[in-house]
Simulated scan of single mutants.
Amino acid sequence: MSKSVARLKSMKKVADKIDHSSKLRTNIPAGMAAAGPPLGPMLGQRNINIAAFCKDFNERTANIKQGTPLPTRVKVNSDRSYQLVIHQPPASYFLKQAAGVSRAAMEPVRETCGKITLKHLYEIAKIKQQDPPLEWRPLKEVCVMLIATARSCGIEIVKELDPKEYGEFLEERKKIVEEQKKMLQEKREAKMLRTA
């Protein structure tokens, strides 16, 4: 009996040494890391000094346009220190910026919310290739991934783009977006009436 108790104690010591902390994966706006929710509680659960993390993140992203969403990976060490890896903004952010739209399409296959040229796609692929998960992938693969992302956002990829025609397209698109917003608001109000 005493041998089994000794084994259990030794196994418990081994189990205590195993680090079960997971990587923190989140998007944080550049230069806007704050101790409040949702970032503060996530860092607190992992025993990271919240004020030091926010200061470090904001210093490292000072040269990036404020408010740009940045995918961030944080690995916590056992001594409460951390390793911070900041990726390039998401592909959908770059695609929407290049197309000049603020929202993606509600029905991506049926409607087009914007257009970009192949040159835009190539430049975005070169930027995204700097991310750690994609740095060893060939540029062609990154371009194929971006084409799929553009399709899911409702962004059409064209060879050439006439600025006047595209300006007219965006004006028409604004009207469609306003109609969609009104429709969504009506649905929300109808749902609120049903639950009240």
Rank of each mutant, 00 (worst) to 15 (best):
N77K: 14
A6W: 04
R173M: 08
V142P: 00
A104N: 08
M32P: 00
M1T: 09
V5W: 08
K126M: 10
W136Y: 10
K17E: 12
E156N: 09
T149Q: 12
K182L: 12
S92D: 15
M42T: 10
Q66H: 10
G36A: 13
T72V: 05
V85W: 07
C113K: 01
A51P: 00
E186D: 14
P89M: 07
M11E: 07
T26W: 11
V144I: 13
A91M: 12
T68C: 05
H120P: 00
G154R: 02
K191E: 13
G31L: 04
F169M: 06
I18L: 14
G154V: 05
T68M: 07
A51S: 11
A105F: 04
L193W: 04
P71H: 04
R151L: 12
A35V: 08
I176N: 04
L70R: 02
Y166L: 06
I124T: 00
I116Q: 02
K13D: 11
P138T: 04
C113L: 03
L43T: 01
W136L: 12
I64W: 12
A34T: 14
F94Y: 15
E59M: 05
K13W: 05
N49W: 02
T149A: 14
K23E: 11
M11W: 08
D56R: 13
E178L: 08
K65R: 11
M32Q: 14
F169P: 06
E168R: 15
I147Y: 06
E160T: 13
A105D: 08
K187P: 01
I124N: 00
Q88S: 09
Y93F: 15
A30I: 02
S21K: 13
N47I: 03
G67F: 05
V101T: 03
G100A: 07
A190L: 11
K164Y: 11
Q97P: 01
K119N: 10
G67A: 04
L24C: 06
D131N: 15
E168Y: 08
A30H: 04
L70C: 07
L134Q: 01
V109I: 13
P29G: 05
G114Q: 01
F169N: 06
A34K: 10
M1W: 06
D79I: 09
Q185K: 15
A52Q: 12
V144T: 11
V101D: 00
L118E: 08
E178K: 14
A33S: 05
E179K: 12
R188T: 10
K182C: 05
L146Y: 00
S4R: 13
D56A: 11
E156A: 13
R173N: 13
K75D: 06
N77H: 14
Q66N: 09
L139T: 03
V101N: 01
P108E: 06
M145N: 09
Y166C: 05
L121K: 01
R151Y: 12
S10P: 01
G100N: 09
A190V: 01
M42W: 03
T68A: 03
K12W: 07
V142F: 02
V14T: 12
Q130K: 15
E59G: 02
V109S: 13
E160R: 13
F53Q: 01
V5Q: 15
K115H: 07
D79S: 05
C153L: 15
K9R: 15
P41F: 09
A52C: 03
V101H: 02
Q45S: 13
K3T: 06
K96D: 00
G67Q: 07
A190K: 15
A196L: 14
L95T: 01
S22H: 07
L24E: 03
I155R: 01
S21M: 10
A148I: 04
